[in-house]
Nucleic acid binder design. Structure first.
Lengths: 208, 208
DNA sequence: CAGCGTAGTGTCAGTCACTGACATCAGTCA
DNA sequence: TGACTGATGTCAGTGACTGACACTACGCTG
């Protein structure tokens, strides 16, 4: 058990290291350019050149320009899935979802600067907003749906409740995100998210 | 200004009639081409030529190719807003939202063929999915948020509940849409949507 | 360790969504 | 009727993305 942890983590060779290095260079250079020049004003060729690769290489690592911006979020889906799986089986569904989504919130807190850039661009650039909603957030939503369906013991195609729970949780997360983006950099994002997620369980009492 | 007064329904002149005729020709020709050739396989120039206008004219009527596909949904937002406003003030929020969203469902029922094409493409083409979520559905969601906030007497920026309600309702609608698309053409969409929306109020009881 | 297969990259040329600029023509209205 | 204005056509671009092909270096196997 030297560097191998659980699922046979083999030391990656030079080729793989170069590949991930290129990928990360693209992500950071893109973020820097988006920050300084704006999203639409930055071309994919500029990003590629800043990372010292050909434009074609950028599109071998990412399917779209938007995907470069959110490139550091790919494993968040897995993280959310594991957080959901880690909740005790006898915990109420909404509580399990709430706790798991706080793992996402915690990640945002840890990568505050990058997340703020992403949220800011999602709020101002149409194509980024669309990507964030339809690709990033939708992937999280699917994890919540899957987990909620499993806990409720139902088929998410027949029973609408898993998807409704997921939609409500994602809405809560969006509210927290918007509030956080509008406030000072040291605002506690997890607390905001928690407050919003608690309100998710209050839909009944909202009745009137 | 324009001709006489504005809010009232004035008989549109020949110029306006031509304009809307062009717009509608673009929408129907696009739908026909998307149906037969597929979305990605149809170029905007082909759509324009089928409608007997220049490609440039298409982009004066619609900002994107996806917007042409959903061109017949523009006034649905207004319809939803009015349905929300029409609900009695003393009705519980969730019930008002449910009834209003059934107005959307009813529209889908009435334009079954076109809606099925749109949903099918949204399920298979990434850019269409993104547009549907981030533009079309998001606009409905905003209407629900606004109405729910007004009914609860809260500011939707501070209080997450309006957005959570809206997110849950939109999720219910998406479930119903997916179920409907997968079933026979004469399936009762309103009934499916109603069943899903009823479940929205059951999040508390879902507890365990 | 020599040699072979292949993954990651560069280069080039092409497609297509979308846009600015300018000319033209047709409704509209004084 | 004549001036104004808004819808359209034409043309020339920009920039995101893609297929094809060649090349190099990594890594494995004999």
């Amino acid at each position: 058990m030297t560097t191998t942890d659980r699922a046979a983590e083999v030391e990656p060779g030079r080729r793989d290291r170069k590949k991930t290095a290129t990928r990360e260079r693209l992500i950071t250079e893109a973020a820097r350019l988006f920050e300084t020049k704006g999203f639409d004003e930055t071309t994919t060729t500029e990003i590629a050149e800043a990372a010292d690769v050909a434009q074609r290489t950028l599109f071998r690592h990412f399917p779209t320009k938007e995907a470069v911006l959110f490139g550091d979020m790919v494993d968040l889906r897995i993280e959310l899935r594991e957080a959901l799986a880690a909740r005790p089986d006898d915990e109420p569904v909404l509580e399990a979802v709430r706790q798991a989504v706080l793992a996402l919130a915690d990640d945002h807190q840890r990568h505050a600067e990058r997340r703020r850039l992403q949220f800011r661009l999602a709020a101002s650039v149409a194509s980024v907003s669309a990507y964030s909603r339809a690709v990033v957030q939708a992937s999280w939503e699917r994890e919540i749906i899957r987990a909620a369906a499993a806990r409720l013991g139902v088929d998410p195609v027949d029973d609408p409740r898993p998807e409704i729970i997921a939609g409500a949780a994602m809405s809560a997360l969006r509210v927290a995100t918007r509030q956080w983006t509008a406030r000072a950099a040291d605002t506690d994002f997890v607390a905001l998210a928690d407050a919003a997620l608690v309100a998710t369980g209050d839909l009944g009492p909202t009745a009137h």
